[in-house]
Write a protein that binds this DNA or RNA. Sequence first.
DNA 1: CTTGACATACGAATTACTTAGTACTAGAAA
DNA 2: TTTCTAGTACTAAGTAATTCGTATGTCAAG
Lengths: 124, 124
Amino acid sequence: MRPRHNTLTPQELEIMKLVWQRGTATVRDVYEALLERRKIAYTTVMTMMKILETKGYLKKRRQDRAFLYRPAHPKNQIIGGMIREFIDRVFNGSAEPLLVHLVKSRHLSEKDLQKIARMVKESE
Amino acid sequence: MRPRHNTLTPQELEIMKLVWQRGTATVRDVYEALLERRKIAYTTVMTMMKILETKGYLKKRRQDRAFLYRPAHPKNQIIGGMIREFIDRVFNGSAEPLLVHLVKSRHLSEKDLQKIARMVKESE
DNA sequence: CTTGACATACGAATTACTTAGTACTAGAAA
DNA sequence: TTTCTAGTACTAAGTAATTCGTATGTCAAG
């Protein structure tokens, strides 16, 4: 059976980004990183990371007295799943209209467009 | 002030797609379209469409005894907002990594790639 | 040994999303 | 007129997401 939806809620994603960035992280590491941007309680972060573990996004082992968490899957895989889910939900599974939007609505810089052009060439 | 988040929940989006498709629609129209895909109650659809109206996504006027709903904003604008929100949330606002994912992970067909190439050319 | 710092475990409250039931109303049909 | 039908209004309940408080345990410093 398929691994299901591979989709992270906004706060879960925020935490996963930090753990991916660091490779491994304790609750305190993540807590302090989040604190720089917004008010949040230590136990909130702990709860979220526990949830991420039960959902299979994080693995943990003891390091001294605290748990050391690390990603259970590579970032690319999880982000890819989120893109897939987004495309399914918003564009009924077809990526092409997303592209059209990106190009038309200036989400892409000139530099981005050139980069795509190169990638397209390379894929030929 | 900014129009805020311009983001639709999954079920809201499902309904908006149907209304955009039709131009205008009654609760019954949407209800019957949804029924073809899954079990759902008439009043559920009504509630959702009322929510969409209070959130400013739909406008309504009476037609005979029922309300006739129509989109308050063009599809492109709302979908564009959802793309923006996704890119902000997942890629910290930069569309380029999304592109890289799309190209690398075969979300895009060969035909899509050619279409991009044309669009890039045209935008020069 | 006692205390303080720091960690986890557990439980719970709040809000948003989704679903749907019940009551009521007005027009159509008998 | 009475009854049936199709609609709206209102209410509520379940689930998921997010937040955090309290209780508890352990290690180290005094």
